[in-house]
Each structure stands twice: as C-alpha cells, then as structure tokens.
C-alpha cells in the first residue's frame, strides 16, 4: 500500500483490467509494465503537437476571416459603384424619356400644322399655308433643340432625321437604359470591371473555410482532452481508448477537414 499502486478497483495490468490472472510456471513471463506502457514522452508530446496544430488552425481561420471581411467590403464597394452607375443611367434615361415625350408631342404638332398648311394650300390660300409651314418648321427646330439639350438625340441623329424626314422612335426605355449604363461603365474614367457578386461568392466560400477551421479547432480540443485522459487515467483500457480516440480525431481532422479548409 505504500508503493503508490492503483487504488482499490483499479489496475494497470492488462490481466487486471479484464479480470484474468497470469498463472502457471510454463507460461511465458508476462511483459513488464514498463514494456507495455506507452513511451512517457509520447502523450505529452502529442498534446503539444495537437495544441500547436490547433493554434495554426486558429491563426489560419483568423487570416481567412480577415480576407472574408475584405471580400465583403469589395463586394459592397463594387455594388455601390455599380448601382451609382445604374442610378445615373436611370436618371438619364428618365430625363431622356421625358424629353422624348415632349419631342414627340412637338413633332405631332408640327405634322398637324403641315397638314393644315396642305389644307390651306388646297384652297389656294398659299399665304396661310406658308405661315403654317413656317410655324411647323419653327416647332420642329425648337423640339430638336430641346431634344438635343436633354440628350434624347445626338446632333447626328437629328441630322439623320432631318435628312430622311423620319422620326426616330418609339423610345425603348430598357434599351436606352442599357446603353446609358454601358456608356457609364465603359468610359475611360469608369471604375473598370465590376463583379460584386463574385466578391460576395468568394466571401461566402472563405467563410465556409473559416467555419470548417473553427470546427477543426474544436476537434483538436477534443483530441487534447482525449490525450489528457490518456495521460492521467489509471486504467490501462481507459488510457488506450482515450489515446486511440485522440489519434483518430486528430488524424481524421487533419486528413478530412484541414486540406479543404486551409
């Protein structure tokens, strides 16, 4: 009782652990306790190894967490830039649409004046017809000036219309919005290629890796706990089971989780 042996009910020998007893002079000598015991340095060494691994995983998770925050900011920043372009394009489109309505009304007015002039000319009232045609021309010119000022038509488009006599239209909001957007995005001073969704997806992917690394770190902690039990337990079976569990958890985590998450 003074040799610091196991307390009642506990044993360090395999025979004791399963209740059998080595007996008989013919039997080979039982291995000594020291021979069956794991090397003294092994479990503490593994505890240290697993702890360092957990530290590395935590460090990597921190790195990736920082990267995902950066990716988030990129995604938000690019979204704002992209939507600013869309807002500018939307405002421009609305302005141009409004200009087109006014242009269209003025054109209709001019066409009606020309028709009225034709009616007057048919009655031999060339003076009235000439006056009406002059007013129609004036109306057109005013309308074109306003349309150019609002950006509804470029000067060249107006020239084309004047030469051919065809009124451009109707106004396609979607098409004009797309072209205004494209103009905002492709200028020499534009913000370049924007892909906020790609950054968002990348942030999500990075966060998934961080999450896996956190769970891996938790698994490492479980392995440390198992190795601690393996170091402290008095029952050999307990020690071996704990040692095995620790090894499986550690190796399993390293092989299955870490490569994908790192």
């Amino acid at each position: 009782m003074t040799d610091n042996g196991p307390p009642p009910g506990e044993s360090e020998t395999p025979g004791d652990s399963d209740g059998s007893v080595e007996a008989g002079g013919g039997a080979p000598p039982a291995p000594t306790e020291e021979a069956r015991r794991l090397p003294k340095w092994l479990v503490p060494g593994l505890i240290g190894l697993v702890t360092i691994t957990a530290g590395l995983l935590t460090w990597r998770a921190g790195q990736l967490g920082s990267a995902s925050a950066y990716e988030d900011r990129q995604s938000v920043g690019q979204t704002i830039t992209q939507e600013t372009q869309r807002t500018e394009a939307g405002l421009e489109t609305a302005h141009q649409a409004s200009g087109y309505v006014a242009y269209s009304a003025a054109s209709a007015d001019a066409i009606a004046l020309e028709d009225l002039a034709s009616e007057a000319a048919d009655q031999g009232r060339t003076d009235v017809a000439a006056d009406l045609l002059r007013r129609a021309q004036q109306t057109r010119e005013n309308a074109e000036e306003l349309a150019a000022a609002s950006g509804t038509f470029g000067e060249q488009s107006l020239l084309q219309q004047e030469v051919t006599g065809e009124v451009a239209g109707p106004f396609d909001v979607a098409e004009r919005f797309d072209s205004n957007k494209a103009a905002a995005a492709t200028g020499i001073t534009s913000a370049g290629v924007l892909d906020p969704q790609a950054w968002a997806d990348q942030a999500e992917d990075t966060r998934s890796r961080v999450r896996l690394l956190r769970w891996a770190t938790l698994a490492m902690l479980i392995a440390v706990a198992a190795y601690t039990v393996a170091e402290l337990a008095r029952r050999r079976t307990t020690r071996m089971v704990a040692f095995t569990v620790g090894g499986i958890v550690y190796a399993g985590t390293l092989l299955l989780v870490v490569p994908g998450a790192w």
Binding site: S75, V76, T79, I80, E83, T84, R86, T87, A89, G90, L91, T93, A94, H95, A97, S98, Y100, V101, A102, V173, F177, P196, A200
Partner: peptide, 22 residues
C-alpha cells in the same frame, strides 16, 4: 447591397413612371 440596388431600381422606376405620366 440590397439597399443600394433597391434605391437605383426605385430611381429608374419612378423616373420612367413620371415620363409616362407626361
């Protein structure tokens, strides 16, 4: 992101609506 997307979509929708009412 949704806030700015909603804002720009609203600008376009309201602008076009105003033009149509003209």
């Amino acid at each position: 992101r949704l806030a700015v997307q909603a804002q720009s979509a609203d600008v376009l929708a309201k602008g076009v609506e105003a033009a149509r009412s003209e």
